[in-house]
Simulated scan of single mutants.
Amino acid sequence: MLAVLLSLLLAQGPAPEPPRVGEIAYEGADAESVRMLVALQPGQPLDTRDVRDAVRALHASARFSRVAAYAEAMGDGRIRIVFVLTTIEKLTSVTFPGHSALAEGILLQTANLQVNAEFQPEQLGTAVEVIRAAYFRIGYRHAQVTPVRKAAPGGVALELRIEEGPATRISQVRFEGDLGLDRDQLSAAFRLDPGDVLNLVALDEAVRRLRERYRRAGRLRARVD
């Protein structure tokens, strides 16, 4: 908008003097707390370079995640400059109400949300999906994760509310094909039984034990899928 306004003014031909800054307003932050960061002053001729410098200075303060500048024509021919500021919010805490099957430390590591860093709402979708995937892998295939954002001193407190749901359990274990070993030997190596939770980590380990059992029996070409 600033560039368009200046283009219109220039298109009108040479003026006795460039438009002057009439007012400077700040939206999203207390004016007294940021005015010292901006060299632009009311009364001086409007120069887009000064506005860009002010935007850079506000960004450089590391207090705002977004800084935008707009120009508005005033009735007396002067220009009002409006800085729209989005304050950086820090993530002060992350908790996981309702969790049981996975420890809080594992959930925090899985979510990959950095406490005391800038809160970025766009990361929540990924955090929810990776936590659900972690639950799926340990046998909780219907787990639900609901993010709840709460205001807290100094930033945002985030709750990722967990509804684990029922665990998926093994209903039957069968060994099929050209076994080469008796079923008792295979069961002893597999170590998963009907009624156990279908934990994919444990399943991978059980398959590894079967392959090792065949290797020790000298059946090096045996394949376990």
Results as ranks from 00 to 15, higher is better:
residue 224 V to T: 02
residue 81 I to Q: 04
residue 60 A to R: 15
residue 149 R to H: 14
residue 210 L to E: 15
residue 176 E to C: 10
residue 30 D to Y: 09
residue 16 P to A: 14
residue 26 Y to S: 11
residue 218 G to W: 13
residue 22 G to P: 04
residue 127 A to F: 09
residue 214 Y to W: 07
residue 35 R to W: 12
residue 158 L to Y: 08
residue 122 E to H: 06
residue 114 Q to L: 01
residue 65 S to A: 05
residue 80 R to Y: 07
residue 38 V to A: 00
residue 196 D to Q: 05
residue 143 A to R: 00
residue 87 T to F: 04
residue 53 D to F: 05
residue 74 M to H: 00
residue 40 L to K: 13
residue 49 R to K: 08
residue 183 R to I: 10
residue 108 L to C: 01
residue 143 A to C: 15
residue 179 L to T: 11
residue 161 R to S: 00
residue 107 L to M: 15
residue 65 S to V: 01
residue 159 E to F: 04
residue 78 R to Q: 06
residue 77 G to H: 09
residue 140 Y to W: 14
residue 185 Q to C: 13
residue 70 Y to G: 00
residue 160 L to K: 08
residue 224 V to Y: 00
residue 221 R to P: 06
residue 41 Q to N: 00
residue 8 L to T: 12
residue 199 N to C: 11
residue 13 G to D: 03
residue 56 R to V: 10
residue 156 V to P: 03
residue 14 P to W: 15
residue 115 V to E: 14
residue 32 E to H: 11
residue 146 T to I: 07
residue 225 D to C: 03
residue 206 A to Y: 02
residue 190 F to I: 03
residue 163 E to V: 14
residue 163 E to C: 07
residue 95 T to Q: 09
residue 178 D to Y: 11
residue 182 D to P: 05
residue 183 R to T: 12
residue 58 L to E: 05
residue 25 A to L: 10
residue 144 Q to C: 03
residue 75 G to M: 10
residue 60 A to H: 12
residue 99 H to C: 15
residue 219 R to I: 00
residue 218 G to M: 14
residue 222 A to Q: 10
residue 180 G to V: 03
residue 58 L to S: 13
residue 149 R to E: 11
residue 15 A to I: 04
residue 86 T to P: 02
residue 136 F to W: 07
residue 134 A to V: 08
residue 118 E to D: 10
residue 134 A to D: 01
residue 80 R to S: 12
residue 180 G to L: 06
residue 211 R to Q: 13
residue 105 G to I: 02
residue 111 A to E: 05
residue 176 E to P: 04
residue 45 P to V: 01
residue 7 S to C: 04
residue 197 V to K: 03
residue 123 Q to P: 13
residue 10 L to G: 13
residue 196 D to K: 00
residue 224 V to P: 00
residue 206 A to K: 09
residue 171 S to F: 02
residue 137 R to F: 06
residue 140 Y to F: 15
residue 180 G to I: 06
residue 177 G to C: 06
residue 127 A to G: 15
residue 196 D to N: 05
residue 51 V to R: 00
residue 224 V to S: 04
residue 42 P to M: 06
residue 202 A to P: 08
residue 50 D to M: 09
residue 83 F to L: 02
residue 187 S to N: 04
residue 39 A to S: 14
residue 70 Y to L: 06
residue 214 Y to V: 04
residue 87 T to N: 05
residue 40 L to H: 11
residue 34 V to I: 15
residue 60 A to Y: 12
residue 32 E to M: 10
residue 132 R to Y: 08
residue 197 V to L: 14
residue 157 A to L: 01
residue 7 S to V: 05
residue 31 A to D: 09
residue 21 V to Y: 00
residue 135 Y to M: 01
residue 56 R to G: 01
residue 128 V to K: 11
residue 165 G to H: 14
residue 2 L to H: 12
